[in-house]
Design a binder for these strands. Structure first.
Lengths: 353, 353
DNA sequence: TTGAAAGCGCTAACAC
DNA sequence: GTGTTAGCGCTTTCAA
């Protein structure tokens, strides 16, 4: 029997039962006599029959698929978070369906619509449009339309849309980083890279200013330069800082691991030592922190907890439970040699969580 | 009208036409009078109607979805290749559906079956089981069953299965790397990391031996150590090489960028200089080559060409065209400071070709 | 050009 | 327990 003509009818006929009995055996949620169950299972195994997921999805209200929208696979931050979500989705008996619009708004919309078209049971968005400080109203509209029929969860926020939020407690991350630097005696601290229109960056920058103020330290605009989230961004910012020939910071917080790498390069090219002449902290704690020398002290998020909470939220919403509109992921600080020369050499692989 | 009760019937009623006319307007491949088309389109726009992809897939033989199975999102090699495939799939008017089994055979099988269940039009596999030198017969069986109804393409190979192959010309990559090192005067060259049971690694190792022989250089077993494909793997291998206290190579080829980072760490910890005391070449040319100092000379694959060829192959097979069973992706060498101290500082971002 | 109607393969309500 | 049957929302003959 050709794979293509396998369906509950052919299986039913061969097993000498009705199609619904086959369905009952497949879905497990109805009682079937031991005898028939055995016969059906045998035929199923014989032909390696698998039910058509499209037909299942059409006939029943759930597809058991959770859609994942991750703005940039090439960024290990997203790659890791995505990976954790994927694991958890499987653990919960769902299927993950990943889309990565690579920072293209057009693709992001296209994918969101496709997820709706495919009747995924929930949508989890990380990064992209939902990371904007000010939500694009057109985007909020789209989300609201989707939200009528499927729960939407984001790691950012979508103003004016019915959308659950599970996001990093950026403030606490900045607190940890700065307390650490203060405790090492640093007073001149820069925060380098990122864009103000990105919510997570905006939050970090605000907190940075607040903390400076509360410590009676004058805020300097040039200690807070903007750039893209890549190596080049951090590199250029740091070079500019050096080139102004004015008081240099003694420590730098880089907006993510990539920009930290750029900062390190700039510092090293000037023959300065890390951490003696310049201490560096990064955010995200991706595997990048392990590729550089010295290794980077970094603010860390317990990606598995993060992913689990995202997926838990999705699953709870699917089953109609109440979930708080906003949940926060706490941060930790992993101290390595980019701030403390004698920091214990951490185990390999401690990067993953 | 609630989003949930939108379908061709409700649209048809409101537009005063039959459901089939709505369908004709949606699919575009049948003639409809200008008048009715306009009316239907108006209603569609009014309600933001989108056809149910499950029903479409059930009723027609194509879903316009191409399934992508990528063994490890956390590896930038896969992340990049995946990204290129995704772009190309969109360009060709299909939808990508990504699954990443994270090196779990169980998940790999689960995902492959799910893709079949969802009636994807083609499956592209990168890494995982299809990268094994010796194909697991059980896996070949699975692929053969799938291949009855959907074209399967891999970057590896699946022995004994009807599966198209688009893979890197590993030999030429090794050729380029070794010629480069020879031209710099190196004769003692090690190849570090990777596992023999992985086809791409096996091919590289074979070629390595062949080239040594053809140059009259004695092959030393300890110059060809195995390890995992991570930083730690390269690090341990290189440490062992140092610890034997015997003739050291003057150059190392690392099986991928991660292991190259480990090699660099080991070399630097011994106070040796790169490239003066130890030249290093890596394979893959991911963004990792840019995070380290000095930057890594690396064998490169034109990921966009690679992705495009994978997707082209899929699309051609979908439309029933003939495609060669094996296609090869050529390699290039990007020379940076890990082998040539004075190599021109390449532009940022040249990593993504 | 258009509409009616028969599937596509499955689930679930209903009757036995 | 089990079979019959009516959808789920779409595409695609087939007639008109």
């Amino acid at each position: 029997m050709g794979r293509s003509e396998l369906n509950i009818y052919t299986i039913a006929k061969e097993a000498g039962v009705s199609p619904s009995t086959v369905s009952r055996v497949m879905t497990q949620n109805a009682r079937v006599s031991e005898e028939k169950r055995r016969r059906v299972e045998e035929v199923i195994r014989k032909y390696d029959y698998r039910p058509n997921a499209l037909a299942q999805g059409l006939a029943s209200p759930k597809t058991k698929v959770i859609g994942l929208l991750s703005s940039d696979l090439m960024n290990p931050y997203y790659a890791q978070l995505l990976t954790e979500c994927e694991q958890e989705i499987n653990r919960q008996g769902y299927y993950p369906m990943i889309f990565s619009p690579m920072n293209s708004y057009e693709l992001e919309v296209r994918y969101l619509q496709k997820m709706f078209d495919m009747r995924v049971d929930a949508i989890i968005m990380m990064g992209g449009k939902s990371d904007q400080l000010v939500t694009d109203p057109e985007f909020a509209d789209l989300i609201n339309r989707l939200a009528e029929s499927v729960p939407v969860i984001t790691t950012g926020k979508v103003e004016g849309a019915r959308c659950w939020q599970v996001s990093i407690d950026e403030m606490s991350g900045v607190d940890l980083a700065m307390e650490h630097l203060f405790s090492l005696g640093h007073r001149h601290i820069a925060m380098i890279g990122g864009r103000n229109h990105v919510k997570s960056t905006y939050d970090k920058r605000m907190r940075y200013k607040t903390i400076l103020r509360s410590h009676g330290i004058t805020f300097r605009e040039r200690y807070l330069p903007e750039s893209d989230y890549d190596i080049e961004g951090g590199y250029k910012c740091m070079n500019q800082l050096f080139d102004t020939n004015r008081t240099m910071p003694t420590a730098v917080m880089a907006i993510n691991d990539f920009s930290a790498v750029g900062v390190m390069r700039s510092v090293k090219e000037r023959g300065l030592r890390i951490p003696e002449d310049m201490a560096i902290v990064s955010f995200d704690n991706t595997f990048i922190v392990d590729t550089v020398m010295p290794r980077l002290t970094s603010v860390c998020y317990d990606y598995d907890t993060f992913g689990k909470k995202l997926v838990d939220t999705a699953v709870q919403l699917i089953s109609g439970e109440e979930v708080p509109a906003v949940q926060k992921i706490s941060t930790r600080l992993l101290v390595r040699n980019s701030t403390v020369k004698s920091a214990p050499d951490p185990n390999w692989g401690n990067v993953r969580r």
